[in-house]
Amino acid sequence: MEPIVLYKVCKSFDEKTVLQELSMNIPQGETTALMASSGQGKTTLLRILMGLEQVDSGYISGMEGLQKSAVFQEDRLCENLNPIANIRLTNPSLSYIQILEAMHEMKLFDCEHQAAAELSGGMRRRVAILRALLAEWDILFLDEPFKGLDAETKRQVMAVTCRLCRERTVLLVTHDLSEAKAMAASGLISW
């Protein structure tokens, strides 16, 4: 597979430059960690790659025809829907049992009938991660996906996530090198 290539990508918002001539090659079929200081454009870069923002200049190749899935910094769940319905939004072909088994892997027990608004922050986070993982995707964008999880839950969730992402293209934005290692990131790009 050809890499995803970014060449001299620039992006500004209201006269503030967020990305300045950023160039990189992102291998497909692997997990790549993206690290930079706060405010240096990591989320903006993901939004550009997802097609939610346009570059001001430069170009990107290798994204053509790829199905995308994402875990944003916010959970973005439908508050009135239960976890099963939230997960099915991205993949309606999943059976109730398939989703329930995946929820149990993520240590989500006895909450399948609760509205998302009633779930704890950590439970909401795990539902958001599962929703992205169980979608049909060629490339997965993870924008600080494990924030807000306690250490043990985070370890379990990273193990499940890593297993479900094996040999697939994943871009992980993190400030924590241990997360990149736990996710078996084969590459680290920082700026």
Results as ranks from 00 to 15, higher is better:
Ile87Arg: 11
Gln114Asn: 12
Gly122Asp: 02
Arg155His: 13
Gln67Gly: 02
Leu119Trp: 10
Glu21Ala: 02
Gln54Gly: 10
Ala116Trp: 12
Cys10Phe: 13
Met158Ala: 14
Ala128Ser: 14
Leu149Met: 07
Leu66Gly: 10
Ile129Tyr: 11
Ser95Asn: 09
Arg166Asp: 13
Ile60Lys: 00
Glu15Ile: 05
Pro27His: 13
Leu119Ala: 14
Tyr7Cys: 03
Ile189Asp: 02
Leu177His: 12
Val170Met: 06
Phe109Glu: 14
Gly58Ala: 11
Leu119Met: 15
Leu130Ile: 06
Ile189Ser: 00
Met50Cys: 11
Ala185Cys: 15
Gly148Tyr: 07
Cys162Gly: 15
Ala115Phe: 01
Arg155Ile: 02
Glu74Ala: 15
Lys42Asn: 06
Thr44His: 00
Asp176Tyr: 11
Gln28Asp: 11
Ala132Leu: 06
Ala135Glu: 04
Trp137Ile: 00
Pro3Ser: 09
Arg88Leu: 14
Gly65Ser: 02
Ser23Thr: 04
Arg124Pro: 13
Thr153Val: 09
Asp75Gln: 10
Met158Val: 11
Thr17Glu: 12
His175Val: 00
Arg166Thr: 12
Glu112Cys: 08
Ala36Trp: 05
Gly51Trp: 04
Ser61Met: 01
Met106Gln: 05
Ser57Ala: 13
Val5Gly: 02
Gln40Ala: 15
Leu177Gln: 15
Glu112Ala: 02
Gly39Met: 03
Gln40Met: 10
Glu74Gln: 15
Glu101Asn: 14
Ile84Gln: 00
Asp150Phe: 04
Asn80Ser: 12
Asn82Met: 12
Val18Tyr: 05
Gln156Cys: 14
Gly39Asn: 10
Val55Gly: 12
Gln73Ala: 11
Leu130Asp: 02
Arg47Leu: 08
Asn80Thr: 15
Cys78Trp: 13
Gln28Lys: 11
His113Gly: 02
Thr44Met: 06
Ala102Lys: 08
Gly62His: 07
Lys8Asp: 12
Glu21Asn: 07
Met63Lys: 10
Gln156Asp: 13
Cys165Arg: 01
Arg76Val: 04
Ile97Cys: 01
Thr161Leu: 09
Lys16Val: 12
Ala182Gln: 01
Gln28Phe: 09
Leu94Ile: 05
Leu172Val: 11
Leu171Lys: 11
Ile26Phe: 06
Tyr96Glu: 07
Phe109Cys: 15
Ser190Asp: 12
Gln73Tyr: 09
Ile48His: 06
Tyr96Ser: 09
Ala36Ile: 08
Trp191Cys: 09
Ala185Gly: 13
Met50Asp: 03
Val160Asp: 04
Met50Phe: 08
Glu2Ala: 08
Val18Met: 03
Thr43Asp: 01
Glu144Trp: 09
Ser37Ile: 04
Ser23Tyr: 00
Leu142Pro: 01
Gln114Ser: 14
Arg47Thr: 01
Trp191Gly: 10
Cys78Arg: 14
Leu49Phe: 00
Val127Asp: 06
Leu149Gln: 01
Lys181Trp: 00
Glu2Gln: 03
Gln28Glu: 00
Ser38Thr: 14
Glu136Cys: 08
Gly121Met: 07
Leu52Ile: 05
Leu81Glu: 04
Gln67Ile: 08
Leu66Val: 03
Gln28Arg: 13
Val9Tyr: 01
Thr169Pro: 05
Ser69Ile: 02
Asp75Thr: 14
